[in-house]
Simulated scan of single mutants.
Amino acid sequence: MTVGTEDTRSQISIGLNAVIVSIIDQQPHVRLLRSNENADQFLPEDNQFDVLPFGPFYPEQHRTLESGLRSWVEEQTHQEIGYVEQLYTFGDAGRDPREQIGGPRMVSVGYLALVQYKDRAAGEDGLWRDWYRYFPWEDWREGRPDLLDRDILPALTKWIRQADNSAQQKERQERATITFGLGETPWSDELVLERFELLYEASLVGETQTEALDIKRLGIPMALDHRRILATAIGRLRGKIKYRPVVFELMPPTFTLLQLQRVVEALSGSRLHKQNFRRLIEKKGLVEATGQIVAQVKGRPAAQFRFRREVLIERQALGVRQS
């Protein structure tokens, strides 16, 4: 949809973006588009980057923004989505390079969708990608990522020193300290967007076309500002699992407690204490035993559980992680 006067500089085009998340082999994945999946017509001709599902909002066809999003997702991915929530409206000037050559301002409404992964249908290989491919510094499950101290922090230190004045230098240092947990400041798993925006401003990611570093180490670039949209979704989901049981939208009907813990760890990018996690789940009454036992490749057979949907009307604080 495009609104405005005949002068394209005052026109606005409204789009819809979807971050569709699923868990595959205990890793968080996002659904991408092939270049020919009804996306080329909405992309710059020279686009070579990964693309999230998206399309324009047509008020004459779409009753609501969400119905428009669902329509585009189904058309582009042949997949129905269940849980959906609106993320943010992305409308910064220049987010679409065609604006600079006379095109309208592109304003996109981003959505987060959670789905349970099913075996790949024919032709779907490669369309689900591990989200840590785009944000490798966000995965702390095996300890502090090496590229933080090897690449990111030295580059940020150089950028801070290149500030125009002492006030700007102080502001850059404070942002780096807060977002990357420097010194005594703890790392916050929810600040995914803030960290990416800082790296973008410092020209340390592929979208800025820097040649200072191997950009592949700092995550794979995405089309337009799709990596910013993805960062927003990851931060939102990491925060939400602490107070709402949205993680169960990603779980199969029955699961073991270890499987549940591994999914929470995958989303948050950090390891959890097994007994503390199980005590939290028990205290909040989020699951109930099915009475079934499943054999495991390693270790003893494990009890199967299911999500207690009744808990949604029993309690308010329903997260699976402590803040």
Rank of each mutant, 00 (worst) to 15 (best):
I20C: 07
H273Y: 03
L272V: 04
I20L: 04
F307T: 06
V263I: 06
E201W: 04
R161Q: 12
L87N: 02
R236F: 14
A317L: 11
R63E: 15
E288Q: 14
L193G: 08
R308H: 08
Q11I: 06
I281M: 07
F255H: 04
A176S: 11
Q173P: 00
R70T: 13
A113M: 11
L204Y: 00
R279C: 00
S188G: 10
A233Y: 03
V109C: 03
Q86V: 09
S67G: 12
I234Y: 08
T77Q: 13
Q11G: 04
E207A: 03
W137I: 07
T157W: 00
P221G: 07
N165V: 02
G55N: 07
Q11T: 06
G82H: 08
A155H: 00
P44Q: 12
V320D: 03
I293S: 15
R315I: 08
R227T: 04
L199D: 01
V247M: 10
A122K: 06
L32T: 14
D149T: 10
R150Q: 11
W137Y: 14
V73I: 14
I152A: 02
Y200W: 06
P28V: 02
V264K: 05
R105M: 10
Y83C: 08
A39H: 13
S22W: 01
E211P: 00
S323E: 12
L198V: 08
R98K: 01
R95Y: 02
E85R: 10
R306V: 03
L52N: 11
Q116R: 15
L237R: 11
L280Y: 02
T77N: 09
W187E: 04
K118Q: 13
D214M: 05
N17D: 10
Q304W: 03
H226W: 01
L272H: 07
Q296M: 15
E171Q: 07
P245L: 14
V205T: 07
T290C: 09
G143L: 13
N276D: 12
Y88L: 01
G239S: 15
R70I: 11
V84P: 03
L267A: 04
R227V: 04
W140A: 05
R31I: 09
S67Q: 14
R133C: 09
Q296A: 13
S268Q: 06
T5M: 02
A122T: 11
Q322M: 05
V3F: 06
R321S: 03
I281G: 04
P186E: 07
E197G: 09
R120G: 07
D50Y: 14
G219R: 05
V294R: 15
V21S: 00
R227P: 06
V205C: 00
E174S: 12
L52G: 13
P253F: 07
Q169V: 00
H226E: 06
F54E: 08
Q173L: 12
A122E: 09
P154D: 07
K274G: 00
A295I: 05
D151F: 02
M222A: 08
V192K: 12
F180K: 09
N47A: 14
N276A: 09
R105K: 13
Q86M: 12
V246S: 08
R95C: 03
V30M: 11
